[in-house]
Amino acid sequence: MEKRIFKDKAYSMLATMIKAMANSHRLEIVDLLGQGEKAVEEIANETSMSIANTSQHLQVLKAANLVEIRREGNFIYYKLGHEEIYQSWQMLRELGLKHMAEMEKLVNDFREKRNSLEALKMDDLLKRIKSKNVVILDVRPETEFKNGHIPGAINIPVEGLATRLKKLPKNKEYVAYCRGPFCVFADEAVQILTQKGFNAKRLGEGFPDWKMKGLPVEIIEE
């Protein structure tokens, strides 16, 4: 094989894989599947797409070996093909946040309106995590919490947070986290908490980022 043919084929194969991710909906799906396996219906609901459109995007990702499927009765479940796929998304996301001024402004404007502009870095959380004064709130859905969470975190999905406030002591510092920098659950949680006089911040990153660092993870077995 001539070297030009070799290079053309190699770059073409990589371009096919990159093209599969080069879509806003499919990037969101990859981000979502970083939380764990999900049914098509769950993905459609989370991404505000029809089941038909969601299935089409998932088939594109599957054709590029980016996701795998598992069938259980009439349901089809999807998960990322391997851990490196989320890492590639993570690197792309960080590149955008660091070097695209428009993206930085978008994130800051959104968080400023929800009192969550001052996000806590993971290194800072690690320093505070042993303090009895810090409460770590996982505001993701319960199924995601059970699949893995930061040790010691308590799960209060954001849609039920307002009804649980009376049971939360106000003399604590609250750190809310969710799926990642583009997940709005933690921002909504901080907004709810601060409006009621709680000291609350969001974690800048999400649970997958915690896991990718090789930090301890708790799982709740059924």
Rank of each mutant, 00 (worst) to 15 (best):
E2Q: 13
K3T: 12
R4P: 12
R4T: 14
I5F: 15
K7R: 14
K9Q: 15
Y11N: 11
L14R: 07
L14Y: 05
L14N: 10
A15Q: 15
M17H: 11
M17A: 11
I18D: 06
K19D: 12
A20T: 08
A20Y: 01
A20F: 04
A22L: 05
A22W: 09
A22P: 13
A22M: 12
H25Q: 13
R26D: 05
D31N: 14
L33C: 00
G34P: 02
Q35N: 07
G36S: 11
E37T: 09
A39S: 12
A39P: 10
E41M: 04
I43S: 08
A44N: 01
N45M: 03
E46P: 11
T47M: 11
S50H: 11
T54D: 01
S55K: 09
H57D: 15
Q59V: 10
Q59S: 08
K62D: 01
A64N: 02
R70Y: 10
R71H: 14
E72W: 08
N74Q: 02
Y77D: 03
L80C: 01
G81P: 00
G81R: 10
H82G: 10
E83H: 15
E84L: 13
Q87R: 11
S88H: 13
Q90E: 15
L92S: 14
L92M: 14
R93T: 11
G96E: 05
M100R: 13
M103W: 10
K105C: 06
D109K: 05
D109Y: 03
R111M: 12
E112I: 07
E112M: 12
R114D: 01
R114Y: 12
S116D: 01
L117K: 11
E118C: 13
M122Y: 10
D124Y: 02
L125I: 00
L125A: 02
K127E: 14
K127V: 13
R128C: 02
R128A: 04
K130H: 04
V134F: 05
V135Y: 03
V135D: 08
V139M: 09
E142H: 09
F145T: 03
K146C: 11
I150K: 09
P151W: 04
I154N: 08
I154E: 04
N155Q: 04
N155D: 00
P157I: 09
G160Y: 06
K167P: 03
L168S: 10
K172T: 13
Y177V: 02
C178L: 10
R179Q: 03
P181Q: 02
C183Y: 04
V184C: 05
F185A: 12
V190M: 03
Q191R: 08
L193Q: 01
T194A: 09
F198V: 01
F198T: 02
N199M: 08
A200T: 00
A200R: 13
E205C: 08
G206H: 00
G206S: 04
F207V: 02
W210L: 06
K211N: 05
G214Q: 05
P216C: 02
P216Q: 00
P216R: 06
V217G: 08
V217W: 09
I219T: 10
I220K: 12
